[in-house]
Amino acid sequence: MPAKVISTANAEHYTWGNNCDGWFLVKTPELQIIEEAMPPGASETPHHHVHARQFFFVLEGELTMAVEYHDFVAKAGEGIEIAPGQIHCASNRSSDKPLRIVVTSQPPSHGDRVDVKA
């Protein structure tokens, strides 16, 4: 595959949750790197992945990540690793600032998700 510059302007886009956006920066059978945008107040459903190990890196805003029901806060320039099987839930608890993160998953997390009742 030839090299190319990729950004949210030319990456494959999808929407999820309540007005959240995702862009596949890398999408291969071995690796997935996604830039995501979460508006103020947005959150996902608690879940875990059977095989995927993930790393969430904050570009802008403040990520609150519940991991095994304990909250961790990561700010711009910080990240958090999630191991396979760990129950987690990302949220943007800000009332006025968007959250932009890069999520790296190996192997890819789509199709590997198991939702958990809160």
Score class of each variant (00 low, 15 high):
Glu12Pro: 00
His13Asn: 13
His13Thr: 13
Thr15Met: 09
Trp16Ser: 12
Trp16Gln: 10
Gly17His: 02
Gly17Asp: 08
Asn18Arg: 13
Asn18Met: 08
Asn19Leu: 11
Cys20Trp: 04
Asp21Ala: 13
Asp21Gln: 14
Asp21Cys: 12
Gly22Leu: 04
Gly22Asn: 02
Phe24Leu: 10
Leu25Ile: 14
Leu25Ser: 02
Lys27Leu: 09
Thr28Lys: 12
Thr28Tyr: 05
Thr28His: 06
Glu30Ser: 11
Glu30Asn: 09
Glu30Ile: 01
Leu31Ile: 13
Gln32Arg: 14
Gln32Cys: 09
Gln32Asn: 11
Ile33Met: 14
Ile34His: 02
Glu35Tyr: 07
Glu36Tyr: 05
Glu36Ser: 14
Ala37Tyr: 13
Pro39Phe: 04
Ser43Phe: 08
Ser43Gln: 12
Ser43Pro: 03
Thr45Phe: 08
Thr45Asn: 13
Thr45Arg: 14
Pro46Ile: 03
Pro46Glu: 11
His47Gln: 15
His47Lys: 05
His47Val: 04
His48Trp: 07
His48Gln: 10
His49Cys: 11
His51Gln: 15
Ala52Ile: 02
Ala52Leu: 04
Gln54Ile: 09
Gln54Glu: 15
Phe55Thr: 15
Phe55Val: 14
Phe57Ala: 11
Phe57Arg: 12
Val58Lys: 12
Val58Arg: 08
Val58Asp: 02
Val58Tyr: 08
Val58Asn: 12
Leu59Met: 13
Glu60Ile: 01
Glu60Leu: 02
Glu60Tyr: 01
Glu60Pro: 06
Gly61Phe: 07
Gly61Asn: 07
Glu62Tyr: 06
Leu63Thr: 00
Thr64Phe: 01
Thr64Ala: 03
Met65Lys: 06
Ala66Thr: 15
Ala66Glu: 15
Val67Cys: 05
Val67Ser: 00
Glu68Ala: 02
Tyr69Pro: 05
His70Met: 08
His70Ala: 09
His70Thr: 15
Asp71Ala: 01
Asp71Val: 03
Phe72Val: 04
Val73Ala: 03
Ala74Lys: 14
Ala74Tyr: 02
Lys75Glu: 12
Lys75Ile: 01
Lys75Phe: 08
Ala76Val: 02
Gly77Tyr: 08
Gly77His: 10
Glu78Leu: 05
Gly79Ser: 10
Glu81Trp: 09
Glu81Gly: 12
Glu81Met: 12
Glu81Tyr: 08
Ile82Thr: 05
Ala83Ile: 06
Ala83Phe: 08
Ala83Lys: 14
Gly85Trp: 01
Gln86Arg: 04
Ile87Met: 04
Ile87Ser: 03
Ile87Phe: 05
His88Gln: 06
His88Asn: 12
Cys89His: 00
Cys89Ile: 04
Ala90Ser: 05
Ala90Asp: 02
Ser91Arg: 13
Asn92Ala: 00
Asn92Arg: 01
Asn92His: 04
Arg93Leu: 13
Ser94Gln: 00
Ser94Asp: 10
Ser95Cys: 05
Ser95Asn: 11
Asp96Leu: 00
Asp96Gly: 06
Lys97Thr: 10
Lys97Tyr: 05
Pro98Ala: 03
